[in-house]
Write a protein that binds this DNA or RNA. Structure first.
Lengths: 182, 182
DNA sequence: CAAGGAGTTCAAGAAAAAATGAACACGTGT
DNA sequence: ACACGTGTTCATTTTTTCTTGAACTCCTTG
């Protein structure tokens, strides 16, 4: 077996590997594919914008995975476009505002689910108008209130995450009172 | 092929099926096994406490699945014990306070993950003390601040979810109708 | 307008996660 | 002490999800 041309192009540094591992487990915690975590981790660790090729090369994953991962990450605003003069490839750079990413995730992934749920629920309520025991109505009301609460919660979360968006200097976190929000 | 004894024991009603379907998709949205959603849905729809047998029979899932699902749901306080005189089997009943379930989920599933992440991060920081470029430290600080924010956020979420459910003193009534909860 | 670069799609294969069910452990009642 | 009812465990099987890579589309450029 012989090595031809560039042997092991673009190895990851230890730190890159560690940061990537961090986001891989974060991704899995959110029920997202491992590769999405890898990709975000790579961008997060990178000082400069990267293109699809770089991702494929450094992470040694397929073009398909890289393409889908990048698309997803862009869809939730975890990656932003970066234009590089004289390069036809699309480059991207990691968003590092937790609030923007959380907002993107919520509005792209969670809200639609909730909406579906709410609709399905209405359908159930309609069906059970005539035939049902009191308990069914009670339960339907309960879920409805849960969905409403969730919808009210999102802006609060967003607001909270923006309160501390630090320019510099991680100020020791003041206890923030929920009353201050809303 | 002949039917012996009870033919199709304990069929689910339409409404039960619908409610269960709702929780199945909720479970999947949270990255939990479908069966957990089925089980919670069944309890949620039930007026009376149920035991493992009932779950196996009505949902037609294995004893193993039912056992693990019930255990998990109890671990996050989505199911509460209910004692039935003269019956050796453990019965359970669905918790229907969203706040209690959310708290359980956060403290059992999310907090530990975060803690791991924080530790791993410290390890990275230690390793990179000597060798690293400024950008690495900056990135580590960023993630640290994210973890801190998350920790601060949980109590706020909990507090928010409790604002509307307790019968006691609705200090701030938001436009939500709730005849539910406890 | 042909050739080649960049990115997407999607069927098929690989990997991971969940469900099953038989064996087991633990009580309880006789 | 034994038999039986109840629930747990975990190796195996099944199902689901993720990844791959070749084929394709769409640009861009010479």
């Amino acid at each position: 077996m012989t090595f031809v041309g560039k042997t092991n192009t673009n190895q990851l540094t230890d730190i890159e590997r560690e940061l990537i591992a961090f986001f891989v487990s974060a991704a899995q915690a959110f029920g997202l594919p491992k590769s999405y975590g890898e990709i975000y981790g790579l961008f997060f660790a990178s000082e400069t914008p990267l293109a699809l090729d770089h991702v494929v090369e450094k992470l040694q994953i397929s073009k398909g995975s890289a393409s889908q991962g990048i698309r997803f990450l862009k869809s939730i605003n975890a990656l932003n476009p970066a234009y590089i003069a004289g390069d036809r490839r699309d480059h991207h750079i990691a968003e590092n505002s937790l609030r923007l990413i959380a907002d993107g995730f919520i509005s792209q992934r969670i809200r639609p689910e909730l909406k579906d749920g709410a609709e399905r629920l209405k359908e159930i309520a309609r069906q059970s108008k005539n035939t049902s025991s009191p308990i069914v109505h009670e339960r339907i009301d309960t879920i409805t209130s849960w969905i409403n609460k969730a919808e009210l919660l999102f802006p609060i979360v967003s607001k909270f995450l923006s309160t501390q968006e630090e320019r510099v200097s991680p100020k020791r976190s003041l206890p923030i009172h929920h009353k201050d929000i809303i």
